[in-house]
Design a protein around this nucleic acid. Sequence first.
RNA 1: GGGAGGAUGCCCGAGUGGCCAAAGGGAGCGGUCUGUAAAAUCGCCGGCGUAGCCUACGGAGGUUCGAAUCCUCCUCCUCCCA
Length: 420
Amino acid sequence: MAADVLTTLASSSVDLVPKGGLEERLAAGRPLRVKLGVDPSRPDLTLGHAVVLRKLRQFQDAGHVAVLIIGDFTARIGDPSGRSETRPMLTEEEIQANAATYFAQAGTILDVDAAEIHGNAEWLAELDTAEVIRLAATATLAQMLEREDFRERYQGERPISVVELLYPLLQGYDSVAIRADVELGGTDQTFNLLMGREVQRAYGQEPQVVLTLPLLEGTDGVRKMSKSLDNYIGLTELPDEMFGKLMRIPDGLIAKFLRLSTPLDPAEVDDVERGLTDGSLGPSDAKRRLAREVVDLYHGPGAGTAAEERFDLVHRQHGLPDDVLGVTVPAALFGPGDGATSVVYVPALLEALGLVESRSEARRLQSQGGVRMDGEPVAAEDIRVEGPPPGQLAGSIWQVGRRKFARLDGVETTEGSSPG
RNA sequence: GGGAGGAUGCCCGAGUGGCCAAAGGGAGCGGUCUGUAAAAUCGCCGGCGUAGCCUACGGAGGUUCGAAUCCUCCUCCUCCCA
């Protein structure tokens, strides 16, 4: 039983420091305090964030305490080196708003109500200079330069702000402040988490157990999933979007995604992996399973299958989906024709439908055959409309590329349309 | 404090007076193919109703018929010496 718990908690971890550390803590039989740092500058969560959150949930399920630390102090200070776009300076309100968004999304994975939540300004804002210096004394420059990122920049003669050297120590102080037993994070956080151990030691606490998890690649299959690289799958994305993006990940990542993003247990994933290797299971089928599982997880049981059906309709049968977003466009797009007819310029219409960013883009796409109305290619020209706009175009379904759709619902005489 | 170099489109990076809406690469997008994978292949990749115009090369001025390219000032960045 205890061994099972340990196996579950340690599953998919990359590093567990020290080796028997987790086992030892668990043996104490008390609820452990498991720390996870939250970046308040990025409120939108992706499947990448979910990897760590799901691990934290496992700890909760095993009776331990999730302690979430919002980095509000560092977010308020910003990074004066001015070269870190990942640490913009935020106002108190923005931090609050982002935190609220974060917890709303994290709530689909974690039991947020049972978690302990702190902003690190609670204690960091109180530190006086003497204390900061004491904190700084816990590490040497040589130790700092062990971090790959710093080392590379140092050797490459690129700047490293002194403040950046301070961040790992401040994060470590967070661990002291909440008396963390365990800290979770992606492998990119390894250095910081280990520094937490040093800081705790310096403050006479038993160093936390560090458990790192693999970084999930983004949809490009190469770089880490992140919002700024635009290769992410967001937890709040619509089922069809989610399903489609998952179908587009490279084959080589199917097993990893299954392991890190679905509730399947490791043995089951092993089976899938074996099947993929010996050819008894097609990559496409495995990917479908993955996509269904993930969509079910975030949109409820059955959502995956429903998304799959629509996916097949659109991408396999090249049909039109039945749930296209309806849009109304400004009546002014329809110019006078002769008599009872009027005229719309297709690129202008596509722009109003929100399918393209500019009319130039629409013309380009059209010249390459990328634009369809009700399934038929359309040229970049005027369409003559009978009767009051949108005339016979009412209810027409417009498509750009393989997977962008909009339905023309009608016109409005006054201001803007409601593009998707 | 002294000296040197740099800022170009989403990113990297050519370009030192007109031939520059700006080479090349990456990313991205569309077509074909397909399993919306990979690979391959063709094309696109500032805006404007399809014509030439407009806006663009850190910011502000200036020289010139003409400036991403020359001059002045400003802002920011990097390196070297101390």
